[in-house]
């Protein structure tokens, strides 16, 4: 199978500007020597705590990171991202229809074609066509996340980064969004880098998983391998916290 993403020896720094009194600026490592690959059409899980460098990695892949060394090869055009908080990822001043048409509008696609594709996409993500007339604040969290996913997919991408796409949602809604992502993955063959802290969800969705702590990848491998035979203490801790032993 072809690789869709290759990351080799990626180092990302951020400069700590120091406070008012401490003038010295120092470089800090956000990612240390990160290397991995993603195959076309696979879902790769990325697990770690807040501040472990998950977001830095996502930003680096999307080309939003300034200070970095190493190689990132992405065999795919306009990568997209679905954000954690569906309350800030949709422009509150615009109607849903406008938001969804925007990526097509800037590609100078005709109005009829735009509307046709938006309608198709809405159907795919399981939203009512009426919601085009609504503003984001009139929708529920789950609906907004569906809109965000639709907007990302309308950019004609084969590669999606999903940054904790369900952790801001209610539990019953979480399951729906997970199923939706899986369905879209199957139908459209997109590769997904799935960032999460919930090992159970990662197990449900992903083919392979990477465990990350303070900027380093501790281990990576197929989900079954990592879960059954964790190598690092941190992974064991995560597995304990995920409550795996007593499933209802």
């Amino acid at each position: 199978m072809n690789h869709i993403l290759e990351v080799k020896n990626l180092n990302v720094y951020y400069t700590d500007k120091g406070s008012l009194f401490k003038k010295k600026t120092q470089k800090k490592h956000a990612l240390k020597d990160v290397s991995f690959f993603m195959e076309e059409g696979e879902i790769l899980g990325l697990v770690g705590e807040s501040g472990c460098g998950k977001t830095s990695l996502a930003k680096a892949i999307l080309g939003m990171q300034k200070e970095m060394e190493g190689k990132i090869i992405l065999h795919c055009k306009n990568p997209q991202m679905v954000f954690q908080d569906p309350y800030s990822s949709l422009n509150p001043a615009k109607r849903i229809g406008w938001i969804l048409e925007e990526p097509l509008r800037i590609k100078k696609i005709s109005k009829e074609e735009r509307q046709k594709r938006v309608d198709e996409m809405l159907e795919k993500v399981g939203l009512d066509l009426k919601c085009k007339e609504h503003y984001p604040n009139e929708l529920s969290g789950g609906q907004r996340q569906r809109v965000a996913i639709a907007a990302a997919l309308l950019c004609d991408t084969k590669f999606l980064i999903a940054d904790e796409p369900v952790s801001a949602l209610d539990v019953t809604i979480q399951a729906q969004i997970i199923r939706l992502l899986l369905k879209l993955h199957k139908e459209m063959g997109i590769s997904i880098l799935f960032i999460s802290h919930d090992l159970r969800v990662v197990y449900q969705m992903c083919d392979r998983v990477m465990i990350m702590e303070s900027g380093e990848i501790l281990e990576q491998g197929s989900v079954e391998e990592v879960y059954e035979n964790p190598q690092s203490d941190y992974t064991k801790l995560l597995l304990e916290a995920a409550n795996l032993e007593d499933n209802v």
């Binding site: 999307l62 939003m64 306009n78 990568p79 997209q80 991202m81 954000f83 908080d85 800030s88 990822s89 949709l90 422009n91 938001i99 925007e102 990526p103 800037i106 590609k107 965000a148 907007a151 990302a152 950019c155």
Partner: peptide, 16 residues
């Protein structure tokens, strides 16, 4: 804000 980031990812120009 995240929606500005996604607009940038969709290829919208800075002026727009």
């Amino acid at each position: 804000m995240d929606y500005v980031k996604s607009a940038r990812l969709a290829g919208v120009s800075d002026l727009r």
